[in-house]
Amino acid sequence: MNIRLEKLTSIYQENTPFEHLALNRISTEFEEGKYYGIIGQTGSGKSTMIQNLNGLLLPSYGEVHVGDITLRRRTKQRTVHQAKKRVGMVFQFPEHQLFEESVIRDVMFGPKNIGMGEDEAREKAEYYLKLLNVDEALFDKQPFDLSGGQMRKVAIAGILAMEPDVLILDEPTAGLDPLSHIETMELFGKIQKEMGITVILITHDMNDVYEYTDEVKLLNQGNLIRSGSTKDILTDEALLREYELEVPDIVRLTFDLERKGIKFEKMPGTKEEFIGLYTKWRDGHAE
C-alpha cells in the first residue's frame, strides 16, 4: 500500500492569533515495503507530517491518499478510522499511553478496536509480546509495575498487534539506554524486512537513519527540501550542514580517512561494512 501526499498544507489554529503554517504544499510519496526516514530540525514539520498520514490531523488543504482511501479537510471520521487501521503509529514515549489492568489486555486494546475478536486479539498480543522479548510471566501483571524499557516494549507491541501495513515511529528510542536503543532499532529493522511493511522513522539520530532506512525526506520549516535515497542525502555534507543536521558517524569517519589518504572503494552503509572495508584496505596495504 502506498501513501501519496498531494500539495498537503497544514495550518495550526487557522484564523486565530496563534495561526502557524506547519506544512507548505508538500507533494511526495511513500512506497510499499520501504524504510523511510524523515529528518529535519525541531519545528520543521516532521510530526505534523506523520500525523497527516493516518488521519490524526486532516489536511488544511490538499490531499493524502492512503492506499485507496483519500483524506481531505472534511473527511468523515468513519473513513479516517479505516486509515488508522492500516497505518500504525508509535508515538514518542509510547509508554505514556498504557492504561489497562494487565499487560496482555493493553496490547489487545488496539486489535479489538479495529474489529478483531477476543481470541484473535489475544493470539496476536501474545505473538507480538513474545517477538519483543517480553517475558510471559509479565503478561498478567499491571503495566505500571514494569520497568520503563519493558513498558515501552508493551506499548510498541500494542501497535504491532494491529498488524498495520505502514508503521510510523516517532523517536522510538528517545530516553532509552544504549543497549535497548540498539535492540529496538534492530527489531524494527527485522520486522520491516520479515513482514515487508513500510516503516517511516522520525529521529534526530542520523546514525540510525543512515544504517536502517532506504530513503530520506528532509524537511525544513514546513517545506520538503529533498527526497531521495539515504546514501545520497546523508553523504551530502554541505546539505546537512546547511540544515544544521549531523553527518552520520560512519560517513564522517570515511571522509576523514579519505582526507588522510585512506580511500575505500565505496561508501560503507553499516558499521560491519565499514570494518570489512577497512580490513580489506589494511590487508591491501600490509607490508
Binding site: Q51, N54, L56, Q77, R78, H81, K84, K85, G88, M89, F91, P94, H96, Q97, F109, G110, N113, I114, G158, I159, M162
Partner: peptide, 16 residues
Amino acid sequence: EKIIKAQSARGSTFMT
C-alpha cells in the same frame, strides 16, 4: 491532546 491522539491511533473512537 497527545494521549487522545495516541489512543485514537490505536483505533479508539470517542468521537463516534
